[in-house]
Design a protein around this nucleic acid. Structure first.
Lengths: 227, 227
DNA sequence: CGCGAGCTTGACGTTGTTCAACTAGAGTGG
DNA sequence: CCACTCTAGTTGAACAACGTCAAGCTCGCG
């Protein structure tokens, strides 16, 4: 059983603040709210996309699966957030996969219910457009990182993302593995490890097991810019 | 002077079919419709984003600028299309650059006018959501291509994109340079040239100056899948 | 106490960029 | 009309960047 009730999330979180009581009720009636264990797959790239997904507790990742069993992490998502909003309109299948990183609560909303709300609530639709635009910006960063930066730049991007966008704190304490850091930066696990200890040695970050503390953000920003 | 009048484009193209006459009029009154010469910059990454851009004639590209003067082409756009829709809601600056590839007609619509229409025309807003979702899918392809494919896979992706999404024809006749093909695939110009002549030699494509004809698409698809 | 997953390090090989030199064609001015 | 320059294309060779492989380590958990 999820720790927090869906009703409460719908009432309290700004994600749903533009919805009418009727619309919230419709979501409650047309969704399931479940507990997922650490590492479970929430949705699978290529599978039929019947739901809009919201994470209400825990931590999750969205990622793209390569042919060579190499994954690329797109987002690390804290509650309360939409997971892969972009896959749902005009798409019959998910074009990404998502999985939990720690035990999490996930709400699956029937796609049609969501679309109905979009078509009747213009303010909400505009909010969603805003979200999608912000997503695009993130994608552009990702593409720049992968497309014209090398090792150090990519890695710095990944750390800055984790610190500024996910943890919102210089202390990154997310129970993320080195493998996942590599998949986030688009580099091999070994390279991620090497860079972590290199930056640790140089006093730019501090390592303590899975906890990474950013000591000199300005230098990371410089690394990101140099590429 | 653009070849086609903005009025005519607004009336005839499905991009604007959900707008009322009033809204179309508002666009006419709050936009400029200009001729751009080949190679001119339409908008610049980092500059204030005051306009929503539409290409009404010609051919354009959107691209991301790297620190090392390496560009990455995101889209090649034929008329009539929005250029970089994603940059405008919630963003004060363009997070991409755009330039013409051949002489083109470009319509610049005041951002506020566009936002006003979005907030009063729900059907149109939903259409834009659809567009943004389709964009996202393209970004995912791009990220997969850059992040977990190598040379051959990336190059195949670029050719398939040009053929299927832009030219909509196995014959790619777009006056695109080798440099631009490289920037689209995320590889160096030299590599692009080498791969073109390699595939030409193997009978997978046919080269005739700037015209590229895809002879064996299934093999390109295979290359794309292998990575 | 032992097992396994995640972590770490070094050596090696592949991949693809970079550099440099050369060619071809298109546009320009004498 | 012919040098001329400039851009785009082409090719080969050298080098750097990173991934891969292999081996050993550590820590948490059953």
């Amino acid at each position: 059983m999820p720790k927090v009730s869906l009703e409460q999330v719908l009432e309290e979180h700004k994600l749903f603040s533009l919805l009418t009581q009727e619309e919230k009720q419709s979501i409650i009636e047309n969704s399931t709210h479940l507990l997922y264990k650490k590492g479970e797959t929430i949705c699978k790239q290529g599978a039929f996309a019947n739901h809009i997904i919201v994470i209400t507790d825990g931590l999750a990742k969205t990622y793209l699966e390569g042919s060579n069993d190499k994954n690329l992490i797109i987002d690390i998502l804290k509650p309360v957030n939409w997971i892969g909003l972009s896959s749902v309109y005009n798409e019959t299948t998910y074009n990404f996969s998502a999985a939990t990183i720690i035990d999490s609560s996930i709400c699956l909303i029937e796609k049609q219910t969501f679309i109905d709300i979009l078509s009747q609530n213009n303010e909400f639709a505009n909010q969603i457009i805003g979200k999608l635009c912000r997503n695009s910006k993130h994608f552009f960063n990702k593409i720049t990182s992968l497309g014209n930066k090398q090792l150090h730049g990519r890695f710095a991007d990944a750390l800055l993302y984790l610190s500024n966008k996910v943890a919102k704190n210089p202390v990154i304490e997310l129970s993320i593995t080195r493998k996942e850091i590599g998949e986030l930066a688009g580099i091999s696990t070994e390279s991620a490890i090497r860079l972590l200890s290199e930056l640790n040695h140089d006093g730019i970050i501090k390592l303590d097991g899975k906890v990474i503390t950013i000591l000199k953000e300005n230098l990371l920003v410089k690394l990101s810019q140099i590429g």
